[in-house]
């Protein structure tokens, strides 16, 4: 399905609940509200016949941005749908309940960023060893204020250079 048609169909179906941006002819980004998140994914996958690819998460001060990639192969472009799961308890409905291919990537996002996917068929960590504590989310950053990001180390200590807002010594500036 052509790009313009897809954008039109999404806008018709979800109206003000989505915002559509286009960075290039091959990349369309759809920002969706949490409540229609799974509906949008299913609409792309079932009704518009997009292929499910994978997902990704980006952490920031206020929450976790979660995105899934849906390529339209015959027309050579990607539609990326995005939503925002707010901290302190980022929660979203699971699309793995409908698209089994999303099972592991949602488990990974849960494990790394503490995104709780409701209705996931088997939401348990996918990568971590059994010996690791359940309440530790390695990729999650604790933000102290607007400028400082602190990432916990193995031993639980904060990295001094990150706290100070400096680049680590010996690393590239």
């Amino acid at each position: 399905m052509e790009r313009e048609e897809v954008k039109k169909r999404i806008a018709e179906r979800f109206g003000s609940k989505v915002r559509i941006a286009e960075r290039s002819p091959k990349r369309v980004y759809v920002y969706a509200e949490n409540e229609i998140w799974t509906d949008l994914a299913r609409f792309l996958f079932d009704d518009l016949n997009a292929r499910f690819d994978t997902g990704a998460a980006v952490d920031d001060a206020n929450g976790v941005e979660v995105m899934f990639f849906f390529p339209f192969d015959r027309e050579h472009y990607f539609v990326t749908i995005k939503t925002f799961a707010a901290k302190p308890n980022p929660t979203l409905n699971s699309i793995a309940a409908y698209i089994p291919g999303a099972k592991w990537i949602e488990r990974e996002m849960f494990e790394m960023y503490e995104v709780n996917f409701l209705n996931h068929p088997d939401l348990r960590p996918v990568l971590r060893a059994d010996t690791r504590p359940g309440d530790y989310y390695p990729a999650k950053r604790e933000v102290k204020d607007d400028h400082e990001t602190v990432r916990q180390r193995d031993d639980g200590d904060a990295r001094a250079d990150e706290v100070a807002g400096k680049a680590p010594k010996g690393k590239n500036p």
């Binding site: 494990e111 790394m112 990568l127 010996t131 690791r132 504590p133 390695p138 990729a139 193995d154 639980g156």
Partner: peptide, 13 residues
């Protein structure tokens, strides 16, 4: 001893 491993998401399979 319980050990914490600070890692980013990656697919080691």
């Amino acid at each position: 001893m319980v050990k914490k491993i600070p890692i980013g998401p990656f697919h080691p399979l």
